[in-house]
Design a binder for these strands. Sequence first.
DNA 1: GAACATGTTGACGTATGCGTCAACTGAGTT
DNA 2: AACTCAGTTGACGCATACGTCAACATGTTC
Lengths: 131, 131
Amino acid sequence: MNRPESDNRDLFAIADLAKEFGISTRAIRFYESKGLLSPERVGATRIFRRRDRARLMLILRGKRLGFSLRDISDYLSLYDPRSQAAQVHLLVEMVDERLALLQQQMSDLNTTLAELSEIRKLASERLAQGN
Amino acid sequence: MNRPESDNRDLFAIADLAKEFGISTRAIRFYESKGLLSPERVGATRIFRRRDRARLMLILRGKRLGFSLRDISDYLSLYDPRSQAAQVHLLVEMVDERLALLQQQMSDLNTTLAELSEIRKLASERLAQGN
DNA sequence: GAACATGTTGACGTATGCGTCAACTGAGTT
DNA sequence: AACTCAGTTGACGCATACGTCAACATGTTC
């Protein structure tokens, strides 16, 4: 039951988050410039809270799923309690589309893997023949 | 047992393939310029054979899988009987990486779907309350 | 107090994958 | 001959998602 230190703190520097998630500080600033994040400031320095960190995690998951930052921006607005139900529906559709894409990809990947193992087999036979 | 007409022919114009696969002729020329295709020529006009068409199908599948054209180019060289076994191995690794990525994506997508249905639930409850 | 780490804001550059002209070349049609 | 259609080659443009400076401020350490 030991949590990572990051779950105990509530304040993070930009470099903390960059290191934790393996991204550049430049990327984080870029997300802010696109309105995906809005950390507090102390002077000019950004101060991130757990909320901001959670948003960043959502951003990164969206990216892993292949969504554009624009899409992710829409998606993040769903976490705003004032969000509209109609938009929820739109986003659900977007996610469903992605799901269909992923299923296609899985199918493509299976085909590809089969072909590669065939190629691998042929290659090793050729090797065994000393050709 | 009726095959599409395209499987009977051996010669295709660029527009035939573009139409068949739902891509632009510009894209096909672009692939050629990157060395992924090398159709014959009659004068300046490109003539595609079934081999070329098969390569194009591989290219498109690679794209669906998220590989870059550079990666796909390497991948296509595997279909060259003179290809090296070492490279087969590299490509198998690349595909394995993609597979891992896709599995991560599927996992991310499941999480996202769960969150969305939660949001959807909350939204509809709010609607029912007339809030 | 001089050096060093960390942070900030532009501005410009980069890679990928085409789209979009522009200008031109045959080939077949009326 | 004039047109139209399909095709060709550059050249330039564009969207996305940052990377890479430069130039500067601030805070900390030795």
